[in-house]
Amino acid sequence: MNRDSRIYVAGHRGMVGSAITRRLEAEGYTGIVTRSHAELPLDDSAAVTGFFAAVRPEYVVLAAAKVGGIVANATQGADFIRENLQIQTNVIDAAYRHGARRLLFLGSSCIYPKFAEQPIVEEALLTGPLEETNLPYAVAKIAGKTMCDAYARQYGFDAFTVMPSNVYGVGDNFHPEHSHVVAGMMRRFHEAKLAREDKVVVWGTGTPLRELIDADDLADACVFLLNGYSGGGMINVGSGEEISIRDLAFLMKSIVGYGGDVEFDASRPDGTPRKIMDNTKLAGLGWRPSLTIEAGMRKMYTWFADSERLREA
């Protein structure tokens, strides 16, 4: 990409989209294009077509999506599959039809089979049943990945999918019901600390293992791939570092400075037992992560605590 290339980041206000926007700005790109949902509702086909016809971005990062944790996926499945299918279909098709040179689609590691062999290679997709708790979201993401592949085969469109491991970091969603594991846990420990509660209850047994990647590391990988990868298909992007939910809880307790007890509610769902990805393909291209889980979480908590103080001021 040239420094003045028109680069459209769809979903620039979300955690991943904002991190990618920051990375592009830090590297001196001046042609970054963004639109809020109010300015451009991506589920509106006519609006998306009009935007691409007028702006004609050369590169597209499709980071816009309806996302959430276990509770949100379990209770809003219809919304997850409908909205994500609409967004993906509109943006991918319009990008191709209006001359985009390359499109990067953000997938999710939840689309891999629930009991995939670990570490998970890209070829494991569609080789087994999915985790039931997020099935509508996973099916939508599989459809987006498949659409990129189909447009590449039929039309020669340079579209590919980035498959991140569990992402956390600055700009995460801390909603008590709709957040992912790191942000949800951070909020619970932070509020328990302020309220001087005796204990924090964590869902599940604590045994599942998760590979976590900081959003800024993921953003760095995405910009790296936009510049130097045109192999199509799908490429895993992970840190290669995994942690159990139990160890994550006690690390979070230490980072937040919470002095109470930690309990695990085994009656609540664990989700996939282990999920770490094989990042050999990405490593072979020359990219490596820069942040450990602890360093990333400390950076995230500093931002979160500062944000909370600003809201209270």
Rank of each mutant, 00 (worst) to 15 (best):
G206H: 01
E83D: 11
V202W: 02
W287C: 07
P113W: 03
A150L: 15
G31L: 11
S290W: 09
V139P: 03
V121G: 15
D261H: 14
W303A: 11
A19M: 01
T75N: 11
M186R: 06
K114D: 14
I70N: 05
A195D: 12
S267D: 12
S165I: 00
W287L: 00
N173G: 00
P57T: 05
D158A: 09
Q118R: 11
G296V: 02
G240P: 05
R196I: 00
A64G: 00
A140L: 11
E27V: 11
L226Y: 01
G240T: 04
G296D: 00
A183V: 04
A266F: 03
N90D: 01
G259D: 14
R23V: 14
V201N: 04
S267G: 06
T34N: 11
Y137K: 05
R311L: 13
E197D: 08
Q86H: 12
V162L: 12
F157L: 10
L282C: 07
R13I: 07
Y112V: 06
V167W: 01
S179Y: 00
R56W: 04
N73L: 12
D247W: 00
E122D: 08
R22A: 07
N2A: 11
H175T: 10
Y59E: 13
V202G: 05
R102V: 07
G69K: 05
V60Q: 05
G259Y: 07
F224C: 01
F157A: 09
H98G: 01
L218Y: 07
L310H: 11
G144A: 04
A143N: 14
E123G: 06
E117D: 09
A195Y: 01
T205A: 05
I276V: 15
M234W: 11
Q118L: 04
